[in-house]
Structures are given as structure tokens and as C-alpha cells.
Simulated assay, not measured.
Amino acid sequence: MFVNVSDVSLIRKLFVTRTDTYAVQRETGEYVRIPEPITDEVIKSHLRGEITVGVYQLSKDSKVKWICWDFDGNRSEALKLFEYLRKKQQYQNAVMLEHTGGRGAHVWLFFDPPIPAKAARNLAVKIASKVNVVCEIFPKQDSVDENGFGNLVKLPLGIHRKYGKRSIVIEPELEEITPVKLPDDVVEELLTGPEILPKFIEWGGCLAIARIWQGVDEGSRNEACFLLSRILFYTGVPREGAELLLTWWNRRNNPPLPERELITTVRSAYQRGYSVGVRSLKKNPVLSKFCEGCRHCIFEAKKTSSKTSSKSKASKLIKPIGGVI
């Protein structure tokens, strides 16, 4: 394959944040990290199909150049999100749709200058929730420590080693992309974390839920996370939204749950689809202590509204940030 030098320059400008290391995809689809700089020759080898490169999204100071929404096998959902962003004036020239060469598609949104990973992550989940799509979202971390790398994403235009097919940039051409500059006040607002309405924090007037939302100690974290996940599921919050909200809540815990453990708990609650009842809290041997002094047990009240009606109010649970979604 002929490699255009301008493509190398554009790929570096748009996608490469961490320049001191990269990863190479194996035939299984897994990646191995290469502790060497990502040079132009590495990018050329990727474009020629000799290797397939993955780039680490977060810089050493935990900033990102892009958001990537990863749709595994559901390209219609990817197109739905892409078309939504193309209609937004501030994003219409900063968004890209890619066929990955695997089973799915990526939607990319680019920023210049780079923004904090936490702000990007909050924005990504809010947009996905607004459009009502289910996908994997990058970045997955708010920050990386001194020796950390975070998650990576496969560079476009390379060959997916597991499926043997080349990635295709569907729209627009790389040279047509103009990264968006987010105003400082918008970035600052995104950094405050997701805002939850009192309707959730004091769900149904339940004092116990309000107490749990303030953070819990070791020994209560898993049960509390599972309960909050079930409430979010019951009220119709998308799983990705629940993961973001509870990652934010987890910072209040003493100590916080490991992120992998928290995500596993959320996904378990969503996969099983449990309802929320009296045994969820008041008769729970771990969480019942939070009920002390509470005179209004929402779990004992007779439910008159259906799960469907609760889900119809889901969009009110996460406040949109003005002007960005």
C-alpha cells in the first residue's frame, strides 16, 4: 500500500497523545505494549499493514485529544450517534465515523487543545445517554499515575489482525477534520462530575440512600454499589451512565473500590435486571445500618407506578451540561 506522508502527519496530530510508547496487536486481537517511541516509521508500517498499532489515549498529565465511542457489532447505533454530532454546530467538523475492520464501528470526537480525561469521559457518557446508544467509551480513566498507561485504541486505517480486514474511515476525510476547542467554562463544568438530582440522591425520600451516596466504608462498598446499580437500572439510566455515576460516587468511599471490581458489580446488576425491594436495604445485614432514624422507608411503600413509567423519567436523572450536548 502506498503511504501518503500527509496521512502520517495527520494521524500523529489527531490520534497520538502518548508519544513515548505504543502497542502492537497480535493475531488474537490482544495487544502487547512496546516501550519505545511511536515514530513516523511505526505509523507508516501500520498504514502499510505490516503491523497494527494501538495508541494510549491519556497523556502523562491525564489529558486526551479525542473521545472514542466503540460499537461492537451495532453499526446502526454508531451511525445514529455520528449523525447526531454532525448536526451539532460545535462538533460537526470534529467528528469521524470509522469501520474498524472488525465487527463494529468507532465514532471519534477530536479536541484541540487536549482536555482533561475526566471532562472527556463525563462528556462522552452524557452524549451517549442523550442519544440513547449503548457502547464502550474511551477514555475509561479519569487519570493515570506516574507509571500508568491507561487504555488504548487501535489506530484507524490499519488491518485488524484477528479478522484480517482493513479499517476504513467512512466520513469525513482526515484532512477535513477540525478539532473542537471547548470553552474553559464548559471544561470546568464537565470536571465537576455528573450532577444527580435529589430525586435520585434521596430516592423517594429515603434517608438511607442519601447516606450511602455520601460514601461508605470498607465492608459495605460492594453491597452499596450493587444497590445503587439496581436503582439506576430500575429508573432507566443506561449502563454506561451508571458506570460513570458510580465511579464518581466511588471516590467518596473509604477506601474506593478497585475500578475493575466496581465495573463488574455494575454490569452484574444490569445483566441480571433485579428489581429493588425491602430486602435490598432494610433487611440487608450489611446496609440496614443506614436506615437508622429513617421514618420513611420507600422500600415498604406500596408501589403504584410501573417500571416503565420510571424509565420514562430516566433522562431527568442526569443533568445536561449547558451547550455541550
Rank of each mutant, 00 (worst) to 15 (best):
F2G: 06
S9L: 09
L10S: 09
T21A: 15
Y22N: 00
A23G: 14
Q25N: 05
G29W: 11
E30T: 10
Y31N: 01
R33E: 04
I34M: 09
E36R: 09
D40Q: 01
D40E: 14
K44R: 14
R48F: 04
T52N: 14
T52W: 03
L58R: 05
L58M: 11
S59A: 13
S59R: 08
K60N: 14
S62F: 12
K65V: 06
N74I: 11
E77I: 03
A78D: 08
L79D: 05
R86M: 12
K87I: 05
K88S: 06
N93A: 10
N93C: 03
V95Q: 02
M96Y: 00
L97D: 08
T100W: 07
G101E: 11
A105M: 13
H106S: 06
H106D: 05
F110I: 04
A117R: 00
K126M: 14
A128R: 02
K130D: 02
V133S: 07
C135A: 06
C135D: 00
C135V: 01
D145I: 02
D145F: 07
D145G: 08
E146W: 00
G148Y: 01
N151E: 02
P156E: 04
G164R: 03
K165E: 12
S167G: 15
I170P: 03
P172S: 13
P172I: 14
T178Q: 15
L182C: 04
D185G: 01
D185Y: 06
V186A: 12
P194D: 08
I196T: 14
L207V: 10
I209G: 00
I212H: 00
W213P: 00
Q214W: 00
R221C: 11
N222K: 07
A224L: 07
A224R: 01
A224Y: 04
F226V: 08
L227T: 05
L227P: 03
L227A: 08
Y234T: 06
T235M: 10
V237W: 07
V237G: 01
R239Q: 14
G241K: 05
G241D: 02
E243Q: 13
L244C: 01
W249R: 07
W249Y: 10
W249Q: 03
N250W: 05
N250C: 06
R251M: 15
N253M: 10
N253G: 03
P256H: 01
L257F: 02
T265A: 15
V266A: 09
V266Y: 11
R267I: 09
A269I: 08
Q271Y: 03
Q271T: 10
S275W: 11
R279A: 14
R279V: 12
S288T: 11
F290Q: 00
E292R: 14
E292K: 14
E292H: 08
G293H: 04
R295A: 05
F299M: 15
E300T: 10
S305Y: 11
S305N: 12
T308G: 12
T308W: 12
T308M: 13
S309T: 10
K311D: 02
K311E: 13
K313I: 12
L317H: 09
V324C: 11
I325L: 15
